[in-house]
Design a protein around this nucleic acid. Structure first.
Length: 511
RNA sequence: GGGGUUAUCGUCUAACGGUUAGGACAUCAGAUUUUCAAUCUGGUAAUCGGAGUUCGAUUCUCCGUAACCUCACCA
């Protein structure tokens, strides 16, 4: 039997990187085994439905280079792949469950349920349905039905039984006492099934062999086992189920990473100019590790190396430093032409198309104002026109973590630094000599003809060292003075190479 | 409170019941260097606690502890 996995999000919100991590596992499992990967649209919650969420989430998963074989957008042999288009199927299923006494209609009102729960909480009892409607006679049920009373359908959990399943990720044999399991509602009073019924029914109907889902589903797994049994699905036709970890936020220890952290927005890192392959690679290793501890994987290499044995049980914490390291690694691997193309693609595709809100939440920080962000975006447009862009990028490629940093590091090539900060540690002791040295550097460069053979880094360097001798300061300090004048601060790409690209007029204007 | 899951350096993790408990990121020191990086070399750093099984426990069992998930007509 062919391996089939699925990713089944509900279109109730916008995806975050946790989505991508989960798709990655399902995708790898299917691809590794030559099977199919299915996208199913679980839109049974009409109240929380968000228009456009499905399309948005699909678009971004695709941006990461992940694709699926069957889904609401492309159809397939088990269509439809949107649950609200499958309602008649579920109806048939739950009627069968009722007929076979695996489920029952519950006419309790929301108010009674709320009251019941309140009372149980107050008396520190387990909050659980009390089973009142289990007691209804056939006559009472018929009467309620003819009166048109609204009802939900609940799973009828048997008494005094063990319910067990084997988790294919944690490799646990998990056992529940059925008396601890609630009679969950599997069909709402509007006739639409809840996750429990719809997902189980569809996994079987779509011949899904392996279900990888979040650990939030572990607690309701006994319900799912019961539904599968009640539906009469033989063991060998049931999907195998595994629960995987959630990614934790280092800023709020022990808490799930949320989209509120802009680094976890699905497009947050992308807008900052991180590379897809780097993000993907980092995500692979959050929750999975190979026996040999290899860390660098392309998507195809990951698929090749993937195995259930490497799945982790404990929740990992996001480490931005490691994310940065991966991005630096992949950035440095590019030839400069490719790197330049990637940079331009980032500007065109992500930076300039991002909406104002995304820009603000992702790029504006304590250190960077909205005005600064806006001016850098203007700069980004300008770099697109620069035929010498690749020469500048070559100087910053190995020292920037992401493209947004690149932009900041090449800014001085285009814009004269507005607030030059001379108050730096290295120059603290020679503040009084600054004017003299600046004049000498200016003279040195001003007297050289840009067209002449003397206009070289060697000449500059020799001249700079001579100035150092004459004024009795360290050569490094003289270089630093020139650096601060030209760049505006103590950090820069290689100085002389930068000057060469800048040109004489621009240098003299600044020193 | 009930049920379930998890626990190795700061972080991600490796270790048929037998290793000086390994690697990566981070960190520290050194080399290189006109700055910052990058690169190279080296160092610091961990088995949650307590019993038990065993010749021997990071690994198996039990008891604690902590964290997470769940206890909705949400998924």
């Amino acid at each position: 039997m062919s391996v089939r996995t699925r990713y089944a999000p509900s279109p109730t919100g916008y995806a975050h990187l946790g989505f991508v991590a989960r798709v990655l596992i399902n995708y790898a499992m299917a691809r590794k085994n030559g099977g199919q990967f299915v996208w199913r649209n679980e839109d049974t919650d009409r109240d929380r439905f968000v228009e456009g969420a499905l399309e948005y989430n699909m678009k971004w998963v695709r941006e990461f280079g992940l694709d699926w074989d069957e889904g609401p957008d492309k159809g397939g042999p088990y269509a439809p792949y949107t649950q609200t288009e499958r309602l008649p199927l579920y109806k048939e299923a739950y009627e069968k469950l009722i007929t076979n006494d695996n489920a029952y209609r519950c006419f309790c009102t929301k108010e009674r349920l709320d009251e019941l729960r309140e009372m149980q909480k107050m008396s520190k009892q387990q909050t659980k349905y009390d089973g009142l409607c289990r007691l209804l006679s056939q006559e009472e049920i018929e009467k309620n039905l003819t009166e048109g009373k609204a009802f939900t359908v609940r799973i009828k959990v048997p008494k005094d039984r063990k319910i067990a399943f084997d988790d294919i990720i944690t490799h646990n044999h998990v056992v529940w006492d059925s008396n601890d399991v609630d009679d969950y509602i599997i069909v709402k009073s509007n006739g639409i099934p809840t996750y429990h019924l719809a997902a189980m029914y569809d996994d079987v109907a779509m011949k899904i062999t392996h279900v990888f889902r979040g650990s939030e589903w572990l607690a309701t797994t006994p319900v799912h086992v019961l539904i599968l049994e009640g539906l009469g699905v033989p063991k060998e036709d049931q999907p195998q189920i595994g629960h995987f970890t959630v990614i934790l936020d280092p800023n709020t220890p022990g808490k799930k990473f949320s989209k509120r952290n802009s680094n976890f927005k699905i497009d947050g890192l992308i807008i900052k100019g991180y590379l897809r392959e780097a993000i993907l690679n980092y995500l692979m290793l959050l929750g999975w590790a190979p026996k040999d501890n290899r860390e660098l994987f392309t998507l195809t290499e990951f698929v090749e190396a993937f195995g259930l044995g490497g799945m982790q049980k404990a929740n990992p914490t996001w480490d931005q430093k490691k994310m940065d390291w991966f991005n630096g690694h992949y950035s440095r691997e590019f030839k400069i032409e490719e790197y330049t193309e990637q940079f331009k693609a980032w500007i065109n595709k992500y930076l300039l198309t991002a909406n104002a809100e995304d820009i603000t939440t992702v790029l504006v920080t304590e250190e960077m104002s909205q005005e600064k962000v806006n001016s850098l975006i203007e700069l980004a447009k300008k770099t697109l026109e620069d035929s010498n862009l690749h020469l500048k990028l070559a100087l910053v490629q190995e020292r920037a973590v992401n493209f947004w940093e690149v932009l900041q590091q090449i800014e001085f090539f285009y814009i004269k630094p507005s607030n030059v900060d001379w108050n730096i540690k290295q120059l603290a002791k020679i503040q009084d000599k600054l004017p003299e040295i600046k004049t000498k550097i200016h003279d040195l460069l001003a007297t050289l003809d840009e067209e002449s053979t003397k206009w070289t880094q060697e000449t500059w360097e020799a001249g700079m060292r001579k100035i150092a001798d004459e004024t009795g300061v360290k050569a490094g300090d003289v270089f630093m003075i020139l650096r601060v004048a030209v760049v505006g601060g103590p950090f820069s790409p290689p100085l002389l190479e930068s000057l060469q690209l800048l040109g004489k007029a621009y240098i003299l204007e600044r020193i």
